[in-house]
């Protein structure tokens, strides 16, 4: 079921469906590899729950919840190997 990236729980994986941001933010998000079909994993959140850190395309990206709102994802089954 599609949901905002903000709602993805820490330690789970999801797949990007769309990036709705336009203009500069949109361009930046795409520059950083957030394109539809990309798999991401939410690694964690900063002390005040914002920004959020993600793993995608074999690297770690951080962005604020307000930017995460532009990204719609669909949940993937969380991998069972790690994550406490």
């Amino acid at each position: 079921m599609p949901k905002s990236l903000r709602q993805v729980t820490t330690g789970t994986k999801a797949k990007i469906i769309s990036v709705t941001a336009q203009g500069e933010i949109g361009r930046r998000l795409r520059d950083m590899g957030l394109s539809p079909g990309t798999e991401i994993e939410v690694l964690g959140r900063a002390p005040l729950k914002d920004p959020v850190s993600l793993r995608l395309k074999n690297y770690t990206l951080t962005l604020r919840n307000s930017e995460a709102d532009y990204i719609t994802v669909e949940g993937l089954e969380s991998c069972n190997e790690n994550n406490s």
């Binding site: 690297y59 990206l61 951080t62 604020r64 930017e67």
Partner: peptide, 9 residues
């Protein structure tokens, strides 16, 4: 402004 930053290894 947006905060979109890479955490390098």
């Amino acid at each position: 402004t947006p905060f979109i930053m890479e955490l390098p290894p």
